[in-house]
C-alpha cells in the first residue's frame, strides 16, 4: 500500500465538522419529535371508527414504508414545486424526515396500543376518567413503555437517514463533509472522520434513549 494517510489537512475544518454534527443532531431532534407526533396520530387514525381515516393512515404508512427515502426527499424537494409548493432544502429535509419517521413509528406505536388489554380501557371508564385521560394515562404511557426499545431503534435510524438529505444540499454533517472533500481532495480521510462522528452520535442517541427509558418508563410508576 503506497497511500499516505493525512488527517492533518482536516484539522482546519474541525469547527465546520462540529457544526455539521450539531446540524445533524438538530435535524434529527426536530424530525423525531414531529415524527413521534405524526406516528401517534397515525396509529390512532388506524384504529379510528371512520373508514376514511383508517384508509388514509394505511395508505400513508404503506407508501412511505415501501419507497426509498431518497425518492421521497426528491419528490418533495424537486417534484412538489411543480404544483406550486416549494421548500428551502432544510424545510424539505425536515418534512421528508418527519413523514418518514412518522410512518415507521406509527406501526411500532400501533403494536404497543394493540397490546393494551381491553379491560384496561373499561377499568378507566369505570373509574370515571375522561377519554383523553384514559388515552394519556392508560393507553399511551404503558404502550410507550412496551415499545420504547423498538421506538428508540427507529429514532437512531432517523438520525442515520439524515445523511441522505445531503443530496438536496440541505446542510448537515454529510454535506459539510462533501464540501470539505472538494476543498481538500482527501475523500477517504474525511469520510472516515464523518463515519466516526456518526458512530459517536448514534451511540450517544442510543444511550440517551436508554436513560430516558430508565428514568421515565421504569417501574415503579411515579
Amino acid at each position: 500500500m503506497t497511500y499516505q494517510f493525512d488527517f492533518s489537512v482536516l484539522l482546519p475544518y474541525w469547527e465546520q465538522l462540529l457544526r455539521g454534527c450539531w446540524l445533524t443532531i438538530l435535524l434529527s431532534a426536530i424530525s423525531i419529535s414531529a415524527g413521534l407526533t405524526i406516528g401517534i396520530l397515525t396509529a390512532l387514525a388506524k384504529r379510528s371508527r371512520f373508514t376514511t381515516a383508517r384508509i388514509a393512515a394505511g395508505t400513508y404508512v404503506e407508501i412511505i414504508r415501501n419507497t426509498p427515502f431518497l425518492v421521497q426527499v426528491f419528490f418533495i424537494f424537486f417534484g412538489l414545486p411543480a404544483l406550486g409548493i416549494s421548500f428551502q432544502p432544510w424545510s424539505a429535509a425536515i418534512l421528508a424526515l418527519s413523514l418518514n419517521c412518522g410512518a415507521f413509528s406509527a406501526e411500532v406505536i400501533r403494536g404497543g396500543i394493540d397490546a393494551i388489554a381491553r379491560g384496561q380501557y373499561e377499568a378507566g371508564t369505570a373509574l370515571g376518567l375522561k377519554p383523553l385521560q384514559i388515552f394519556r394515562h392508560i393507553v399511551l404511557k404503558p404502550a410507550l413503555r412496551i415499545i420504547f426499545p423498538a421506538l428508540s431503534g427507529q429514532f437512531v435510524l432517523t438520525l442515520l437517514t439524515t445523511s441522505i438529505v445531503s443530496s438536496i444540499s440541505a446542510e448537515e454533517l454529510t454535506s459539510i463533509a462533501q464540501s470539505i472533500d472538494t476543498l481538500t481532495f482527501r475523500s477517504f480521510e474525511i469520510y472516515i472522520v464523518a463515519t466516526i462522528l456518526y458512530l459517536t452520535m448514534s451511540f450517544g442517541f442510543a444511550t440517551l434513549f436508554k436513560l430516558i427509558d430508565r428514568v421515565y418508563f421504569s417501574y415503579p410508576v411515579k
Binding site: L160, Y198, L199
Partner: peptide
C-alpha cells in the same frame, strides 16, 4: 448499524 449506509 451505527453508521449511515451512505457513509459506508
Amino acid at each position: 448499524q451505527g453508521t449511515p449506509l451512505l457513509m459506508q
